[in-house]
């Protein structure tokens, strides 16, 4: 057993987790600031300079809140559900290539955690697992409306997973591999968003529906009688749900960047490999800004309109796109 490799993995995993969790905290801050600026307000500016310590304040508050478990709720699953929601959000980031290889202390270290040959499939698999947390949260609250809200949220996620899966296909077909790092490398000549604008658009829309963000956030809205599947949650368990949502936002932006926007590629990246993560971070920031902008701008879809859009609009479009792409590739060779 190569101890150096083991240590490298452990360090990289820890570093990635820390970066993700800090990123989540500051994504909440980013959201509040950007929303505020769009709404002609200022946003948090009291906790720390420019309000930068606001996420810390929120975290401390949530830790000190009373942990309530409803009377006849299923205690084990009630407590586990937020954890089950959080884990896929974290592990989906394992296959994202943050850069190429760099040399640290005389050792070649690759700037990604796992170079899996079926990277894209791994992402699909983890996305499918993330449905469980929502369903179990709704069920374990012992509240009829939480259950219905949870089932609807998960039905929404499953429906949009179809179109999402089909939107994954064009970059795979163009690059000829399921390995995410090789897909990024294949975009050295031209980013795939130029070849596949429709698939990029479908990917964006379906991933926003997957993450339950506006305008697809009816399961969390007050019009759903209760606040949907996380009504009965308070304190740190509630924080875990939001952690999962924002971490998924970051992950989805990173995946979109890797598949369509050239991942860690950018000017002068081949000479200075450390620029790779910087470029990827910029693209992730762009994706996050887009999602926050959408939330500030649009009203939300009603549930039946949402499902109709997913099944009758995006899924056929994605399918058609795949067929046309395959045809063109077969013709061109």
């Amino acid at each position: 057993m190569d101890w150096a490799m083991l240590i490298e993995w452990v360090v990289k995993a820890l570093l990635l987790t820390v970066i993700l969790l800090t990123g989540f905290a500051y994504t909440t801050y980013l959201e509040r600031k950007v929303l505020a600026w769009i709404q002609v307000r200022i946003g948090p500016n009291r906790a720390g300079p420019w309000g930068l310590l606001q996420p810390a304040a929120d975290g401390i508050k949530l830790i000190f809140k009373e942990e309530l478990i409803p009377a006849y709720a299923d205690k084990i699953i009630f407590v586990l559900a937020p954890v089950i929601t959080m884990i896929p959000a974290l592990i989906i980031n394992a296959v994202i290539p943050w850069g190429r290889e760099v040399v640290i202390f005389g050792r070649k270290v690759a700037l990604y955690l796992a170079d899996v040959n079926v990277g894209v499939l791994y992402i699909m698999a983890v996305a499918s697992i993330s449905v469980y947390g929502v369903v179990l949260a709704g069920w374990s609250s012992n509240n009829k409306y939480s259950l219905l809200g949870g089932l609807r949220a998960s039905a929404q996620m499953i429906s949009y997973e179809l179109a999402l899966g089909l939107a994954f296909l064009p970059p795979i077909m163009l690059a000829g591999t399921l390995n995410l790092r090789e897909i990024v490398e294949a975009q050295r000549s031209m980013w795939y968003v130029v070849y596949q604008p429709i698939a990029a658009f479908i990917f964006l829309v379906t991933s926003i529906a997957e993450v339950n963000r506006a305008p697809f956030d009816l399961p969390e809205a007050e019009q759903e009688l209760t606040a949907g599947y996380h009504t009965e949650y308070s304190g740190m368990k509630f924080a875990l749900f939001f952690m999962a949502e924002y971490t998924k936002m970051i992950a989805v932006s990173a995946i979109f960047a890797s598949l369509y926007l050239g991942g860690y590629l950018g000017p002068f990246e081949s000479q200075f490999p450390w620029l790779g993560p910087v470029y990827l971070a910029l693209k992730i920031f762009l994706g996050l800004f887009l999602m926050i902008w959408l939330r500030a701008t649009f009203p939300r879809f009603r549930y039946d309109q949402l499902m109709a859009l997913g099944w009758k609009g995006l899924f056929p479009l994605a399918l058609l796109n795949v067929v046309v792409t395959a045809g063109v590739l077969a013709l061109v060779g």
Binding site: V118, L121, A127, S128, I129, V131, V135, S154
Partner: peptide, 24 residues
Amino acid sequence: PFLAMVQITVYAGAVMVLFLFVVM
């Protein structure tokens, strides 16, 4: 690996979710 991922995506991620829906 392909089979492993497909097992999770299809079986654990879709079929079992529908099972759970019905049960709940």
